[in-house]
Design a protein around this nucleic acid. Sequence first.
DNA 1: GCATATTTGTCCGTATGTATA
DNA 2: CTATACATACGGACAAATATG
Lengths: 237, 237
Amino acid sequence: MRADAASHPVFPGPGLESDRALLGRTSMAERLADILRARITEGYFEPGARLSEKAIGTALKVSRNTLREAFRLLIHERLLVHELNRGVFVRVLTVEDVADLYRLRKIVQCAAVRAVAAPPGDRLRPTEVAVEAGMDAAKRQNWQEMGTANLRFHEALTALAGSARADELMGGLLAEMRLVFHVMGDPERFHEPYLARNKEILEALRAGDGPGAERLLADYLDDAEHQLLDAYRSKDR
Amino acid sequence: MRADAASHPVFPGPGLESDRALLGRTSMAERLADILRARITEGYFEPGARLSEKAIGTALKVSRNTLREAFRLLIHERLLVHELNRGVFVRVLTVEDVADLYRLRKIVQCAAVRAVAAPPGDRLRPTEVAVEAGMDAAKRQNWQEMGTANLRFHEALTALAGSARADELMGGLLAEMRLVFHVMGDPERFHEPYLARNKEILEALRAGDGPGAERLLADYLDDAEHQLLDAYRSKDR
DNA sequence: GCATATTTGTCCGTATGTATA
DNA sequence: CTATACATACGGACAAATATG
């Protein structure tokens, strides 16, 4: 049997009552999706849990039609899966999914850094910010912040490719990665040993050595992939 | 003023009446999206056209709620755009979009062929089929078929990367490309001069020369991009 | 700028089909 | 097999925003 979100007595966190009236030029469905996305990535809805239309709809006081629109958004982000006439479930990622995610990440991220031929200057600013934010958060032992800083680092690397679609793609892949990290015992802490390597990659990029940065990044991603795959396989038993 | 789909007197092609009863394990919204996607890629709904909920809903005899679910699907495929309180429109791609599409295509497709280090044998079968289908269709002057064969060729190249997510990504990018081709006077005919180059790339892959195939493909994509960008700019006037 | 008509956004009630205990 | 719970799809309603004259 699967875990069921409907069994939770209450739906925690801020609701929607604050600004129902379509204020920020964002639709109700989008705000709904934001709330649900937060619940999923923080692990409140565990992978495999079913999200009942009725239970969530009544808890958040939105109609089923609106809720379904929010579901669609998250399904497309691959955080939820939809089974016909059965409902939507929090995605359960397999070991094949993890391998696939890293295969595509390597293609896109390595291409992005490889293209760097000369010191990029200001274009490197977001990467620098992410590296510093990560090391600062680690010093303060704020693992939550460190985790998001690390994701920002990878987003910043991808942005070097200069493609909006590549950025959006990576955003989706990294959202899926959050589901992966969650099988680790201490999800946020997982990134800590990689902070130093972030800095190495940044230095190579500062020097305009794209191919060098690519080698560092490829090893980095290989190591992280194997660490996660090992954790996945040991969890299966 | 924009073109409006509602002004069309009838909605051509097969409707939904044939199998309303949820036969093929696919929801009504998905089948609806299939129909609309076909209309868009074949150019019946031109870029910029608004898709009226009422007009299409009554024409296809589906409720607004169901139609909106179908719209959601196509919006996330980037074929439609949604403007709050204004409706959905067929996406209008800008020159920046075209450049962006090719930027990401080069990253993914070039990585896919570059990884080929030895003669791939059976893994190359879909590519071979696509090349032959294209040349056969050209001989029969069936430009429609030639166009789809060409898209299959690029899908087949991408599949060499061995990533389901890369395949899905490329499927989406190529769907967007159909919107681009449509600004060309003779959209299907556009691909004809590239058939010979498809065969060249195939030969390099057969020989196990991934880097050689990558060079050919990079030039290929550069040429196609510039040809389309020129057509786009001249169309703007 | 104003008044009107049209269209979308949201929600509800219900009938039907489907999956599961 | 039956019963129950749920998703699917529909049609109607009203509010809110937009387009039109």
